[in-house]
């Protein structure tokens, strides 16, 4: 599974699916909802591929980098950047940061895309909460930003209804 998940990034089918997207932000949005990027995220989550696998894969791609010639695996690197965008590990941070700092014409689009990914990455924190109303029957509704809240009943008894606010 791991070989297929990465090999499809260098396939003609993948390149054709990307089509004519011209800007880093549009490319990022398309890749974020693509099957290929979802496959990589799933494979990382399930342990089918590791970050070391990704490191070796990128290294093999870069062996075909030729100064002065457009880098032929730019889309593959861009897809990996999007796959790592929300991954909260040092490797993901290193990958995106280092890619965003390159200044080479040959892979300008994926450099710009990495910068877009880093902008999205500031939201690496998730919030989750619950309201516990002790000893009262009333449910007190309120809304708090984008967190998911559940209203529970007393600690002594079962929850009286549930109200999820987003």
């Amino acid at each position: 599974m791991s070989a297929r998940v990465l090999d499809q990034l260098t396939s003609e089918e993948f390149a054709v699916s990307v089509g004519f997207l011209s800007t880093a932000s549009a490319l990022r949005r398309f890749l974020a909802r693509s099957k290929e990027v979802a496959d990589i995220r799933d494979a990382l989550r399930q342990g089918a591929i590791t970050e070391e696998t990704l490191r070796r894969f990128v290294s093999s791609l870069l062996q075909e980098f030729r100064p002065g010639e457009r880098f032929q695996h730019e889309l593959a690197v861009a897809a990996l950047a999007v796959a790592l965008e929300q991954r909260g590990t040092d490797f993901a941070e290193e990958f995106l940061r280092d890619l965003s700092r390159l200044q080479r014409n040959e892979m300008g689009l994926c450099t710009l895309l990495a910068r877009e990914c880093l902008k999205q990455r500031t939201s690496l924190t998730k919030d989750r909460g619950k309201v516990f109303v002790l000893g009262h029957d009333d449910q007190i509704p309120f809304s708090v930003g984008s967190a998911v809240w559940g209203v529970c009943g007393t600690a002594a008894g079962p929850a009286r209804g549930s109200l999820l606010l987003r």
Partner: peptide
């Protein structure tokens, strides 16, 4: 990462 590219230095024409 991308050490081999970094070693080449910047080459962005504008």
């Amino acid at each position: 990462m991308f050490e081999e590219i970094k070693l080449l230095g910047p080459a962005e024409r504008s």
